[in-house]
Structures are given as C-alpha cells and as structure tokens.
Design a protein around this nucleic acid. Sequence first.
RNA 1: CCGCGUUUAGCGCAGUCUGGUAGCGCAUCUGCUUUGGGAGCAGAGGGUCGGGGGUUCGAAUCCCUCAACGCGGACCA
Length: 567
Amino acid sequence: MRTSQFPLNTVKETPADAEIISHQLMIRAGLIRKLAAGLYNWLPLGLRVLRKVEQVVREEMERAGALEVLMPSVQPAELWQDSGRWDIFGPELCRFKDRHQRDFCLGPTHEEIITDLVRNEIKSYKQIPLTYYQIQSKFRDEIRPRFGVMRAREFLMKDAYSFHMTQDSLNETYETMYGAYSRIFERLGLEFRAVLADTGAIGGSLSHEFHVLADSGEDAIAFSDQSDYAANVEMAEAKAIPVTQDPEVPLSTVETPGQHSIEEVSAFLSIPPEKIVKTLIVKGSAGGVVALLLRGDHALNPVKASKIEAVASPLEFASEAEVLEAAQCAPGSVGPRGLEIPIIADLSVGSLTNFTCGANHNGRHFQGVNFGRDLPLPEMKDLRLVTEGDVSPDGQGSLRIARGIEVGHIFQLGTKYSEAMGATVLNEEGKNQVLTMGCYGIGVSRVVAAAIEQNHDDKGIIWPAALAPFEVALTPINMATSEALEKTATRLYEAMKQAGLEVLFDDRKARPGVMFADMELVGIPHRIVISDRLLETGRAEYKGRKDQEAIEIAIDEVVPFLLTRRG
RNA sequence: CCGCGUUUAGCGCAGUCUGGUAGCGCAUCUGCUUUGGGAGCAGAGGGUCGGGGGUUCGAAUCCCUCAACGCGGACCA
C-alpha cells in the first residue's frame, strides 16, 4: 500500500476526552474516530488491525472444531421473553419497536438466538456435541461508556456456544476452548492470565476469565508467585492466618473521643491496624442486621459476604439508624463484645489475641480483648479481599495482585437456557433430553485496545507482529527530487509485495521527520529507509520499532533480511 | 441514574466576569524555499459561538430551558 493511496489520518495533539493511553493512541494513529458516546468508526488502518485479531480467532476456533455462523444483531423480543431475560435485563438492553409495533432489541449477547437456532435445527444426539461461533457486533447501552473501544456501547465480539448430552462432554469442550483461548492470546503476543471467575448471576459451575495484564485494567486479579493459581480477586480464597500466642492481658476500656475510622483509632492508641477488629453492620437476609468482623487492615469482599446465607444479597450496609438500634452507638464505635445480633468473623479474626475493638458506646473502645474469655468465638467465614503477600489458596507460594483487562470469558452454562427455551434432542433411548451448554466470548475490539495498553512507548504504538496493520514501512528520503531513488524504492516495494510482506510505502512528498514520526506512531514493526546517500553505497537502513539504533544492510539483502525478522 | 464540569473553525483553546457582532496555535489549500527527526516565508479557505426562548438599541458574553459530551460515583461478560 502506498501512503498516497492510503491516507494515514494521524494527529499530533492528544484528544481532550481520551484518558487512557490506548484510547489516545488509537485516535492519534488514526485507527478509530468517535461517532457518539461509546460508538466508533474504524478507519482503514484500524480495521486492518481488527481483522488481524479476527483472523487469529477464526483459525483457532476452527482448529478447536467450532463452526462459524452469523446471527442478526437485531433480535425479536419473544426469544428474550422465552428465556425470561426480557424482564430481567435492565436499561442496558436497547429495546425498540419495528413499524408493526413488534418489540425488538439490539443483541447484547446471543444465547437466546443460538438456543433457538439449535432447538430448531438439531434433533438427534448423533449431531451432538456441537459448537457454533460468530464474530458479530454487540450493543450494550452501558451507563457510562469510557476508555474508547475498551468500554464501548457497540463492540465486536467473538462468541461461541457449545451443546452437549453430558457434563463430561461439556468439560471436554470447555478444556478445548480453554486451550484455544490460551493459544489465541499467545499468538497475539499478549501477556495474559487465565483466572478463576465468579459465575455470578449467570450461574453455572465453572468459569474462567482471560485477562491481559495492564496497570490501567479495570479488574484486579490475584495469582501465586509459585504455582498456576490465579483468580479474580472477588473469587480468591483467603486462608486463615496462624494464631500468634501472646500471653493474655487484662481487658480494659479506653476513651477514644471522636476517633471513628481504623486509621484514627490506630493512630490515637498507637496500635497497628492488624490488632484492631473492624465491625461492619450489614442488612440480613431475613430482615434485621448482621455484624461482620474483619481485621483492621483487611477489606471486605462483597461477593463473598453476599454469598453467606444470613447476609442479604446483594450486599447492603445498614443505615445509621439501624446501627444505633443494634449497638446503641454510631458506626465508628461498634464492637462484637455484647452485641446481640448475629456475628460472623473473617477467618483471620479468629486467631487474634489481645485485640482492640469498639465498645458499643460512642467514643469508647476495648483493649486486650480475647475470644473465649471476653466474648464467645463467633461463626467464622472467609470474608475478606485477599491482599498482596497472602498465602496462595493452593498452599504454594504467596499471592500477588495485578490489574487486568478482561478480554475473554468462558463458562459452563449448564441447562439455564436450553431448559427455559426447550432445547432438547432425542437421546439413544429415543427420549427428549435437555442440552447442556457452554459459552465462550472474546472482546475482539477490546483486544486491540488491550494490546496497545501493553505495547507502547512515548512515540506511539508498538504492535506485536500478529496485530500490526503493516509489517514494514518503506520510507525513502526526498524521493521527489531523485529519479534513481524513486526507481529503487519502487523496485524494493514490488519485491516486498512479491515476497508476501505487508508493506506501507511512504511515497508522500513529506520531510523525513514527518514520515518517521507517523510510522512510529502507527507502530509498524519494521522500517526500511533509503536515500541518495545510502544508495551510493548500495545499502539501506533497517530499524525495528523497538530498536534503539538502526543498522545498514545491502539493498539486495533487504527482502531476505525482513523475511527472517518477521514474527 | 446522582453530583460536578464542558460545549466558540477539522483538532486543541482564548474571548464570557465588565454586552458593541469573533481570535490564537495546529491541521487543510496555493506559491516560493528547504530536505536524515513533526521546517521557514507569503497568501487563502473554513465558524447558524451546541439548540430554542427571553432581556437589551445591540448577546459568544446576562437570564430561562433543552440537549450532547466529559469526569467522579453507583452499575456492569
């Protein structure tokens, strides 16, 4: 491609509304343009990158035995009413009526459609197991789209759905998909982790998220420094902390006027936060309130808390009035001793001795508190968010916390949709049997942004080989004034194309600085410079996008050299 | 959805407080010059000042209203 026929649309200035680096660079490099909040045009350069992702995804889906289909992005309401999700989905489901006043929506996902397709087309166990996939635009009317295509309202997604007669068969395909996903992100050159995920409201038994590691990621993930264990922090199990056997000290009461938060009490009494018990009052599942105890330096994990039977789901904190009623004091002075509501303690609280806690009296705390002696040992559960340095749940190594961008999610759906929508086939006994399902998503457009978050410098994007819109930038200097140079450049350009290299030939009448800056911003992995000066020695200059220094090579060696360098 | 903020040329912004009919930088186009890291000179084009209503002799500027966009929160494969 020649730049005279493939405009680059780069911009020097950083757009005011782009916060994260990938968004800024995608605008500046001319990959995307915003149409409205959460809606983007993909320019030719950006689309080439998107297609690269699609290509890798398609190849690996085919290898995994999945078959490509294409389903409409507009979907009839009846199917969503079938599954029950028409009423459950909130305003992020974009609904509208057609000219006949029939209800439709823009598909945020395609479980209903694929289940309908399969229940109509697949009649026999002999056609099972079966996996369909598609690459299609989704629309979710996000409350607050942000970060460019990272969290857009319309985005491109690969979604796959598998259908099975048995759980074993589902497990097998799930494993295959897990492997396919790992291959995809490896081939794309991304540093990623597969992590155990919360199955959440969707249900099902097993779920993994695939995260690209990046500081700007919206999710926190925990992983062991010595084993394969990795989980979303919401899911990561916190182990009990061994008992420290200090000799018991007597219980005492201390005045702490105006000291409410753990930090305040800690500073006021000169006690480390890990020796203070934090008492949180939350709403109970059967009305009333429940007290949750945590070590002062630990944070509550709302996902774990809301899974406890006695605690209301979703988790909701008690109002100040409810706290006053339960403890006769304000939230900053609540403690478990003498509290007459259900109490659940985090595992790490149970091993504390001589701790400090609120005395259920405004401006007053207890010190030297011990379970067994001063109050009964409460029911204990895993309640807290894991922190850096915690023991890994598998017992191997300690946990580290990193931020990640969720680019893929696989989970075992079970019979949630097939049951609700009557997706059955005849089994070997000639009886109707409900299909078991799995589903597997990849945020294709999000992968592009995630790749940039992980691969950039102050000059611009540094594409991994598999994603680069072009492999080579051919930049002749002052070609307009040198016929000899133009001849050589054209010859090289044709030779590169012959060799199957994707080359962007900068034939603009631009100054060298402009060409270099553009090619670096756009992130093309390899650059070949030729000039009259170099021509005299029969050499060209090569520089990789990540290289500090350029090297000179014979012009005749350029194509073979590039072929050895390509990823 | 709540709170705060923004909206003036393709992009980034000034002008608004104190009303007098719009400006800067970049980008674009033309010409000259220059040519190994986003050049220089000269010239040109481009704006219903987010929409509507009001006050005023006169509104980008003051008032009312609607909208879009952004940030924080809550929410969310």
